[in-house]
Every structure is written in C-alpha cells, then in structure tokens.
Simulated scan of single mutants.
Amino acid sequence: YLAAVLISGVENAALVGGLSAIGAALYSIGIPKDSILQYETDVTADSFLVMARGPQEEIARAKEILRPINPARLDIHPGVEAATPAEQRVAATG
C-alpha cells in the first residue's frame, strides 16, 4: 500500500507545490497539509514516520502500542482516502 502511495506521490509531486514526493503522496491520501509539512521536517531530521490504517478499534490499539515509545507526535487523521466511516489513520513521529 505504501509503495503505491509513494509512486502516486512522485507522479503528483509537481501538482502539489512545495511538497516532496512523500509529502505529495501523503497529500494524495488526504493527510492535512499542515501535518504533512511537520512530517517532512521530522523525516528530514532523521525521525521515523509510522502510519497505521484500519477500523477505529485497530487504530486505538496501534495508538496504545506506540504510546510507550513516547513519539514526538501521535496524530489521528479520520476519514483519510476512501476510508469507511469507522476507519481512521494514526501517524507517529519520533
């Protein structure tokens, strides 16, 4: 899934001014631009970006698994890219 998103981002990078290929890929799946800018900054500074996708219960579980490592950010992006009503994404950097 992530490979397809990254390929889409490379193809769409020119369409979304000011974003890298990974930023354009995140934008193409509906991540808000202000979050993308922070994620790009974090990744450039050698941090990791971890994303989880699934129903609300799985996102809650992913959040609990990630919380003990004290991520710099732990964001939930509901309704991203053709998600079912109960589906959300969580992203953590650190």
Rank of each mutant, 00 (worst) to 15 (best):
T84A: 13
N12R: 15
I69A: 12
V16W: 07
E57C: 00
E87H: 02
S47F: 14
L6K: 01
V80F: 01
I29K: 00
D46Y: 06
R73G: 07
V10Q: 13
E11Q: 14
L2G: 14
Y27K: 14
R89E: 00
L15F: 10
P32A: 14
Q38R: 15
A21L: 05
A52H: 06
P32Y: 10
K63P: 00
L15M: 13
E58G: 03
Y39C: 09
V5R: 03
L49H: 06
R61S: 07
G23V: 12
E87N: 02
L15N: 15
A72N: 13
A86C: 04
L15Q: 15
Q38V: 15
K33Y: 07
G17Q: 15
F48P: 02
F48C: 07
I31N: 02
L2K: 04
S20I: 10
R61T: 10
L6I: 04
A24D: 06
E81A: 11
A21C: 08
N70D: 12
L19F: 10
N12E: 15
G54K: 00
S20P: 02
A24F: 05
I65C: 06
Y27D: 13
R61F: 06
P85D: 10
R53A: 02
A62Q: 04
D34T: 14
A3K: 10
Q88T: 04
E40K: 12
I31E: 03
G9I: 12
G30W: 02
P78R: 01
